[in-house]
Amino acid sequence: MRLTVNGEPQEVRASTLEALLAELDYEGSWLATARNGELVHAEDRGTCLLTEGDRIEILSPMQGG
């Protein structure tokens, strides 16, 4: 299915957010995820079902002022 991941179009096989992270080679306990503008907790990624056109954000700590 086609998703938008961090602003880029992606064609993926994954059906859950957890599988998406694995498929796209994201790993790390420091990641935060959102689906269509809403936070998805790390423990909920396995049950977060993806649908065509979802907008996924995968964020990570960085320097800030």
Binding site: N6, G28, E57, I58, L59, S60, P61, M62, Q63, G65
Partner: peptide, 22 residues
């Protein structure tokens, strides 16, 4: 100290390294 969140690149480890430092 103040910190932020930004989009991570696939396979990226920068965020983890920064968070360890902080």
């Amino acid at each position: 100290v103040t910190v932020s969140l930004r989009r991570e690149t696939a396979g990226g480890k920068d965020g983890g390294r920064f968070w360890s430092l902080v």
